[in-house]
Amino acid sequence: MDIIVCIKRVPQTAEAEVKIDSTGKDIEKDRLTFDMNESDTYALEEAALMKEKFGGEITVISLGDEDAEETLRIALAKGADNAIRIKAEDFDELDAFQTSQILKSVIKDLSYDIIFTGCISTDDAYSQIGLTLAELLEIPHAALVIDFDANEDRADVQRELEGGLIEHLDVALPALFTIQTGINEPRYASLIAIRRAAKKEIQVIGKDELAQSEFISNSTLEKLYVPPISKQVEILDGTAAESSAKLAGIIKDKGLL
């Protein structure tokens, strides 16, 4: 069973101070750490589990600059057999839709039974690439998968809905699935795998090598700004009864219950 996993190298902003750079359209990245997008790590692990079950090869693809090879190499150490980088430096700014089209132009020529992507990237948070890609490749899809199993030509899939409800599906392969975090326990890379990965070749594909050279953009990011919310604790004083009453009021007003 051959599996393709699309991964993205993203800045780790959860614990960081995020500052807008001088273009106003991007963030200052020099002090940030970068790593594989969180849900992509689960997607990769799901692929590794499927490979353990069925054999076959895992190919990871990332559209990114040279640094993305570091992330691809991590993927190679954690179960992938092949890695492809599509050179982001060959393109101007890309939106999610264009990215999907570029990925499609490479993936369409590859052999695969399953494509896994993360369900969302933590940087721009669109949740678009997976489904767009599935549509472009004209294969079925399911988003937000939290449980996955497969046999030769069908997948048994559970999607996470709101409120603890789960949707149980049966999907024909080949298909694309966007993977939710928590579906599995992503593995560590062993030192043997790390050394093996360090020596593997990463296939690099430039714009010229793509079958297509024009990709329609859906949207343009005009500017970034700090949303006008700041966290400052509001101490509710008074007697226990007074403070409780204030709190109850706030909870009600904000519709938190």
């Binding site: 800045p11 902003t13 959860a14 995020v18 807008i20 963030i27 933590t122 940087d123 721009d124 948070a125 329609i216 953009s217 859906n218 949207s219 343009t220 990011l221 005009e222 500017k223 970034l224 700004y225 700090v226 949303p227």
Partner: peptide, 14 residues
């Protein structure tokens, strides 16, 4: 919102 909700973005559609 982008970047873990830390920034807002204004996006113009085609």
């Amino acid at each position: 919102h982008m970047f873990d909700g830390k920034l807002a973005a204004k996006v113009l559609l085609r």
